[in-house]
Amino acid sequence: MTTLSDAWDWLTDAAHWAGDDGIGHRLLQHLVLTAVCLVISCAVALPVALVLGHLGRGGALAVNISNVGRAVPTFAVLVLLLLTPVGRWGEGPTVVALVLFAVPPLLTNAYVGMREVDRSVVRAARGMGMTGRQMLFRVELPLSLPLLLNGVRIAAVQLVATATIAALAGGGGLGRIITAGFNLASTPQVVAGAILVAAFALVVEGVFELVERLGPAWARGAR
C-alpha cells in the first residue's frame, strides 16, 4: 500500500497541478488529442459504413480490412510513421496511428447497425415512395443509431487509454507524466499517471452512459 499512498500524495500535491508540465495542462492536451482523433475517425469511418450498410454490398470487405488495424499494435504503427515524412508533422504520426486504431469499432458497429435494421421497415419505406437518401436518413440511420453510438463510445474510451503513446513521440497528454516518472525512476509518479488515465477513461465512459440515459428514446434503442 505504500506505493499507492505515495501516488496519492503525488496526485494531491498542488505543485504537480500547475504549469506546462502540470496535471491540468497534460489533461487538457489529452482531451484535445482524443477529441481530434475521434472526430477524424468518425469522419472517415461513419460515411463509409452508412453508405455500404445502405447498399448492402462491400461492407464485409471494408470491415475486415479495417479490423487489420486491431491486429497491428498502435505503437508499431507510430514507430513506422515516425520514420516516414509524416514524422515531420509534429503530432501527425500520433494522430494517424490513433485514427487507424479507432476506425474499426466505428466502422463495424455502424455497418452492423445498418444491416440489422428490420428489412420489412425498409421495404415499407420504399413502398411509400421514399428515395434512397430519404430511407438512409429518415429510417435506417435513426434505427441503427444505438449501435452506431456504442461504436463511438468504444472508440472514445480506447482513444483515451491509447493516447498515452503520444508521449513516446514527444507529444503531450497524460502519457508525459508516466514517461517522466520512468525517467526519474519515480514509481509513485508512474502509478499516479496510470491512475489519471484510468480515471479519465472511466469519466468518458460515464459521460456516454449519461448521454445515452438522458437522450431520446430512439437513441437508446427503443422502437
Score class of each variant (00 low, 15 high):
R220A: 12
H25F: 15
G59P: 12
V44K: 02
A192G: 04
H30L: 00
R220C: 08
V72H: 04
R133S: 12
L83F: 03
V63L: 07
A71Y: 12
V203E: 11
N67A: 14
A49G: 06
A43D: 03
R213E: 09
R126A: 15
D20Y: 10
V32D: 10
L159Q: 01
I23Q: 08
P105W: 00
R138C: 13
V203K: 12
P188K: 01
A18D: 11
V211Q: 01
R213K: 06
L46G: 03
D13Y: 12
L46A: 03
V86K: 05
R123M: 07
G215M: 13
L100C: 03
A15S: 14
T2P: 11
P104K: 02
G171E: 05
A97M: 07
R126I: 10
M135N: 15
A45P: 07
C37D: 03
A155H: 00
V79S: 08
A185P: 09
A15E: 09
Q158I: 10
L159W: 06
A194D: 06
A110H: 10
W10N: 00
H25Y: 11
A45G: 11
C42Q: 07
G175A: 05
A43P: 03
Y111T: 03
A45I: 01
P146M: 05
R57Y: 12
V204C: 03
S144R: 04
E209I: 06
N64K: 10
V39N: 03
V191M: 05
L210R: 14
Q189E: 10
V117E: 10
W17K: 00
H16T: 13
M135E: 14
T94G: 11
L50F: 14
T164L: 07
D118M: 09
W218R: 15
A7L: 02
A201S: 11
S120Y: 15
F75Y: 05
L61N: 08
V112N: 13
G172Q: 12
L83T: 03
R123N: 15
A14Q: 12
C42W: 06
A219S: 06
G22D: 04
V79K: 06
G171L: 02
F101V: 06
A62G: 02
A102T: 09
R133A: 14
W8Y: 14
G206C: 04
F75E: 11
S41W: 00
D118H: 01
G92H: 02
V207L: 11
V211E: 03
N67G: 08
V152L: 08
L27A: 09
L143W: 01
A163H: 10
A110W: 08
V197L: 04
V191Q: 04
V203Q: 07
